[in-house]
Design a binder for these strands. Structure first.
Lengths: 224, 224
DNA sequence: GGTGTGCACGTTGTATACACACTGCACACG
DNA sequence: CGTGTGCAGTGTGTATACAACGTGCACACC
C-alpha cells in the first residue's frame, strides 16, 4: 500500500542507499502497524529483515526518533512510540494554529485558493464515491498541505510537514473505519476554498476550526 | 561559553555517551563560528578532535542535520548550513505565529503570566545593566520559551524549541554587536506581561508583533 | 593551447568485531 | 518464604576494516 509516498522533507531525492531503504521499510512497517506500540525494536532483527547490517538500521532509527516515530531509551533501544489521545488532540490543535496562520495570510494578501486545489477536491470526491479510503485520506493530506504551502513560509511549512507522521496512522483509521463523514469533510473543504476566494479570513478560519476539532473527538472514541 | 545549555528536547538526561559528546562539541563549534558557513565537515577530522571514532560523529551529524545545523550531501558529507536573511525572517515570522497562539490562549483562559517570569525579567535587567550580552540573550530566550511553555501544548512547544538552534547564533550577534536596544526589549517584555495579567490578548499580540518584527530587520543590516 | 580521458587519492557508506551495560533468573541466605 | 546477590545471556554503543564512489590533477591527444 505504501503510505508515506513522499519523503518527510530533508534530502530531496536521496539515492536508494541502504540507510534509506531501512528508513522506508521500518517507517512503513510502523505506519502499517506491523510493530505494536511500545514494542522494542531489535537492531539485529531489523537488519536481517531489511537485508543490511546494523549500521544503516541504526541511522534509520535515529531519524525515526527525530521524527517522533520511536523513542530512544539508552542501552535499551528504540521503542515504537505510543500516541495518547491527549497528544493526538494537541497535534490537531497545533495543526489548527499553523493552518489558521496560513489561511489568514492568504486572505490578507488576497491571493485566493492555491492552484490545483480544485483538482485535488475533485479527485477526493471520486475516491470517496468509490469508497477508496486510503486514497481519500492521502488526498485530504494533500489538500491541507497545499493550503499551508500556499500561505505559510518555508520554515513554517516544514514544521507542519514534520507533524504528519505523528497523526497519519490514526487519521487513516478514523477515515477508514469511522462513521463515514465523507460529505461533511468535502463540504467543509469547499467552504474553506470559497472563503479564500472571497478573501474572508474569519469564515475560513472558523470552518477550519470546526473541521479540525471533529477529528480528535472521533479518534478518542476509537482508542478505547 | 557553552550556549546550548539544555538539550533540544528528546532524550531527557542522556549519559555522556561518545555520541552525545560529539553532538555537543560539534553543535557548539558551529554556534561559536569555528566552522564557516558552507564548509564541509570531515568525519575523520571531527572524530580526532572529539576524541572518538567516526561512528558517534556520524550519529551526531545526522542529528545536527535533523535540527538543521547542517545539510547532508550524499557522498560528500555534512555542510554547515547557510542561513539567509530570507530564512531568518521566516523563522521570526514562524516564532510570531507560535508565540501569538500561546499568548492568545493564555488570555482566553485568563491564566496570567507564567510563574517565574518576573525573576527572569529582573535577571535580564541586571545582565543588561552589566552589559553581559550573552546572559542577556539567554534570558531573552528563556522569557519567550516560558511564554510558549505556559500557553501552548507540548507538541507546539516542541516545534518552537526545534526552531531555536536555527536563529540563536545571529540573535546573539544582534544583541551583542547591534545598537543597544536593551531598553526597548525590556519595555516590550514588560508590556507583554502586563497585557497577560490584564487578559488583553489583542495588546499582547500587538506588542509581540512589534517586538519580533524589529529583530530580523536589524539582522538584515548585519548580514552585509 | 584547449579539451578530454584516466588514474590516484581521499572521503563517505557499510559491514563486522568487540566491549560494556542492563535484564532476568536462579540460588543462597536471612 | 521473602529478599538480596551473583551470573549468564542478550543487545546496545563504539571501534575498526573494507568497499564504493566522487574529485581533482596530470597527461596525452586533438
Amino acid at each position: 500500500m505504501s503510505m508515506p509516498a513522499d519523503e518527510p522533507a530533508g534530502d530531496a531525492q536521496d539515492s536508494p542507499s541502504a540507510s534509506t531503504i531501512a528508513y522506508r521499510t521500518i517507517s512503513e512497517a510502523i505506519l502499517v502497524g506491523t510493530y505494536a506500540e511500545g514494542q522494542f525494536l531489535d537492531e539485529s532483527g531489523l537488519a536481517r529483515s531489511v537485508g543490511t547490517s546494523r549500521t544503516p538500521v541504526r541511522e534509520a532509527l535515529r531519524r525515526l526518533h527525530a521524527e517522533r516515530y520511536v523513542d530512544l531509551v539508552p542501552r535499551r533501544g528504540a521503542q515504537v512510540r505510543v500516541i495518547t489521545a491527549t497528544e493526538m488532540q494537541e497535534i490537531y490543535e497545533t495543526r489548527l494554529v499553523i493552518e489558521s496562520a496560513a489561511l489568514t495570510k492568504i486572505c490578507r494578501q488576497r491571493r485566493g485558493a492555491p492552484a490545483g486545489v480544485e483538482q485535488t477536491l475533485a479527485d477526493m470526491e471520486e475516491a470517496g464515491a468509490a469508497q477508496d479510503w486510503f486514497t481519500f485520506a492521502r488526498l485530504d493530506q494533500r489538500f491541507h498541505q497545499s493550503l499551508v504551502e500556499h500561505g505559510a513560509n518555508r520554515v513554517l511549512a516544514d514544521l507542519y510537514q514534520a507533524l504528519r507522521p505523528r497523526h497519519i496512522r490514526l487519521a487513516v483509521r478514523t477515515i477508514t473505519e469511522g462513521p463515514h463523514r465523507r460529505e461533511t469533510i468535502e463540504r467543509e473543504h469547499r467552504e474553506i476554498v470559497a472563503a479564500l476566494e472571497a478573501h474572508d479570513a474569519a469564515t475560513a478560519v472558523q470552518v477550519l476550526n470546526q473541521h479540525l476539532t471533529a477529528v480528535p473527538e472521533l479518534m478518542r472514541a476509537f482508542s478505547h
